[in-house]
């Protein structure tokens, strides 16, 4: 079954929405508590749409850090999306340039992962739009809720929800690992690199993800030369 309809995209976005809402609420609450003006917080979710860098920005903005430094850190943190859209672009159905401008706007770790781990090789533009739009909407709704919530969510519940997006990534990844020893090897290679870099402790997580992703994918590309797709 080729995922191609807008509705299928919306449905595939549900686990992302569940994961985004508590994080976006936490973002709104944090921004408010450190004194970032509400309109800036709202604009960040509307125009940046990248969780980790938004948290970083509101924390740094109120501690007297140069704006140029915040922008540079954001660039490093989100550079991995370059690799992701490059990969996604190979599987997108033939699409006009305006559509590509639109679809690129909604590429996050989460939307990329859900779209990429679809069984079919070719991905429909309406499907990706539906997926991105649901994720984007809930990220923004959550931000507003966080801003206008009078009291904080109990911290134990909020803490427990921090695992939501990781759980989604695991939910997407395990069936692929089970179906392919090549995928397993690529994942293990990437995780080993990531853990090694983490234990050294002198690279930011943005760089670590980029390097580990490149290493893992390169191991797969070097070892498995035959022309079959890992998606089968």
């Amino acid at each position: 079954m080729t995922p191609h309809t807008f509705l299928q995209g919306l449905r595939a976005g549900i686990p992302i929405a569940i994961g985004y809402v508590p994080i976006a609420i936490a973002f709104g609450l944090l921004a408010k508590s450190v004194g970032v003006p509400d309109q800036i917080t709202i604009l960040l979710s509307l125009f940046v749409f990248a969780g980790a860098s938004q948290f970083m920005a509101v924390q740094m903005a109120t501690s007297g850090v140069f704006v140029s430094e915040i922008i540079f850190t954001t660039f490093i943190l989100n550079l991995r999306h370059f690799l992701m859209t490059a990969s996604l672009g190979q599987r997108l159905e033939p699409t006009s340039t305006p559509w590509r401008f639109l679809l690129a706007y909604g590429v996050t770790d989460e939307t990329f992962s859900v779209a990429s781990l679809q069984k079919s090789h070719v991905l429909g533009k309406s499907y990706i739009l539906g997926l991105n739009l649901l994720a984007y909407s809930f990220w923004n709704i959550g931000t507003w809720v966080g801003l206008f919530l009078s009291s904080s969510i109990p911290s134990s519940i909020q803490q427990s929800m921090g695992i939501a997006l990781y759980a989604m990534f695991i939910g997407l990844l395990m069936p692929s690992i089970r179906g392919s020893s090549k995928v397993l090897l690529v994942v293990v290679a990437a995780v080993i690199v990531q853990v090694l870099l983490s234990s050294m402790g002198w690279l930011s997580n943005g760089w670590r993800i980029i390097i580990a992703t490149i290493c893992g994918a390169a191991v797969g590309a070097l070892l498995f030369r035959e022309e079959e797709s890992p998606h089968e």
């Binding site: 991995r80 690799l83 992701m84 490059a86 990969s87 190979q90 770790d109 990329f112 992962s113 990429s116 781990l117 803490q159 427990s160 921090g162 695992i163 990781y166 990534f169 695991i170 997407l172 990844l173 692929s176 690992i177 090549k182 995928v183 690529v186 994942v187 293990v188 290679a189 990437a190 995780v191 690199v193 990531q194 853990v195 983490s198 997580n205 670590r208 993800i209 580990a212 992703t213 490149i214 290493c215 893992g216 994918a217 390169a218 191991v219 797969g220 590309a221 498995f224 030369r225 022309e227 797709s229 890992p230 998606h231």
Partner: peptide
């Protein structure tokens, strides 16, 4: 062909490095 294979493996490598080891500290 090499680059094509490389890009096909990106999702799996990215997911692995997004999850581990960060997931263990996701609740603090």
């Amino acid at each position: 062909a090499f680059l094509e294979r490389f890009l096909r493996f990106i999702p799996f490598a990215a997911l692995g490095s997004l999850v581990f080891p960060q997931v263990f500290f996701s609740a603090g």
